[in-house]
Design a protein around this nucleic acid. Structure first.
Lengths: 226, 226
DNA sequence: CTTATGTATTATGTATACAAAATGTTTCGG
DNA sequence: CCGAAACATTTTGTATACATAATACATAAG
């Protein structure tokens, strides 16, 4: 029950950032569940630090929307409602479309090659059964696209929005019947960027998110029912 | 030189939030200039609080991108480069387009009326010469549109992105030759939402940002030159 | 048996103290 | 007069102490 969080001690980072990363990971992987309270002394003892870095980490989690503050009561892990997820996905769709459009304009030869490789890697990953490998391949692919936009702000926002759904990532990754579709969609996106076809790329990106949305919403409804 | 910041003491808010709002305002209005160091004890003395709330406020400003942290050196006000502003505007364009499209679908009768009023208010404001009145009217109008989307996440992101440009807001507000154009653009947006014409609304929103972008970039080039 | 009140505990909000690192300055040697 | 090293100062990073508000529990009254 009192399993320790995995503290990936990057000996150089300030403690607040170590704590921040640790807590964020714990929330995103579901170790810390929605509604669970984050009590400072408790966390401080558990992570072996004082309250100060804990508090500073919580301030950042608060602004990221992963925890909510209740006045004079403290922080707790933010609940994910269907509405809030819908909101996130609506924005993400727009930003993913923007990403592929900008990528069409700005992608370099090297990035294009990396994208091709990521596409192949993903297909290969789906052949195996390890969901976490598939998830990583998926992240890698999308990272290449946003990086190709050359827009750091966009990168930051898309990453943040993606995080909000990490807890439900397994949903469309685990569902093997969808793997074929995912591979096809990725290829479609790859090819349209290769041909610098913004129109087609934006349609493909939109479709890609739409399908993810359907899986995730379906899963949430299932979870809320039980 | 040592003018006090305006601390709008909302006697109930935690000090960290008071400090956060105060510092953010100071940065956005240019009281704290890009590159200026934020020293904790100094700020603490100036605001009459201890270092703790200062630090927590800085953590949030850091995540908002308004200050950057230099390891073992502290925080300083983030520089605005042409690149970073371009990045922000690129994203904002996409989100503003999304906003008007969603508004077309979801705006209520009351919100539509409020939008009409805001449009008229803005036109009236341009007749006067007070830039801050015009700026407020402009903000009010855009707020109504994002609120009409019913998407809280979108609201939060658009507000945050707008903030990044507040320091340059005066640029396109002060330029009286542009007032006519701004009024026309607002009316165009208003009418397309009224007619639930997503296509036209999105074109209008894009144009609106494009024009702002041109003014602001021009101004930045001027400032960097001197 | 239920409800209300008072007390005790707990957790946050804030301040301060201490340590370590970086920067600036002074002094000494060439 | 210039450069390098040592020292002093400043500032962050972290921990701890204290006060206040909120919650929970127990006890007493109806």
């Amino acid at each position: 029950m009192d399993e320790q969080f995995q503290v990936d001690m990057d000996e150089f980072l300030p403690l607040r950032d170590v704590v921040f990363n640790t807590l964020r990971k714990a929330i995103l992987t579901g170790q810390l569940k929605p509604g669970e309270r984050l009590m400072e002394v408790h966390l401080a003892n558990r992570l072996g630090v004082s309250r100060t870095p804990i508090r500073e980490a919580i301030r950042k989690l608060e602004l990221e929307g992963l925890v909510i503050m209740i006045p004079r009561r403290g922080a707790e892990v933010a609940q994910i409602t269907e509405k809030s997820l819908n909101d996130v996905l609506e924005v993400r769709r727009a930003l993913d479309v923007l990403s592929v459009e900008l990528a069409c304009e700005r992608i370099t030869e090297e990035e294009m090659a990396a994208l091709k490789k990521a596409c192949d890697d993903f297909e290969r990953a789906t052949k195996g059964k390890d969901a976490s490998v598939i998830a990583r391949a998926d992240v890698a692919l999308h990272d290449i696209i946003v990086q190709a936009t050359g827009n750091q702000r966009l990168q930051q926002l898309v990453n943040n929005l993606s995080e909000q759904m990490y807890r439900y990532r397994f949903v469309y990754i685990k569902d093997e019947s969808q793997h074929e579709k995912l591979v096809t969609e990725h290829k479609e996106i790859y090819e349209s960027i290769l041909n610098r076809d913004k129109e087609r790329a934006s349609r493909a990106a939109k479709l890609h998110i739409d399908n993810q949305e359907k899986s995730i919403i379906r899963q949430i409804r299932l979870e809320n029912r039980k």
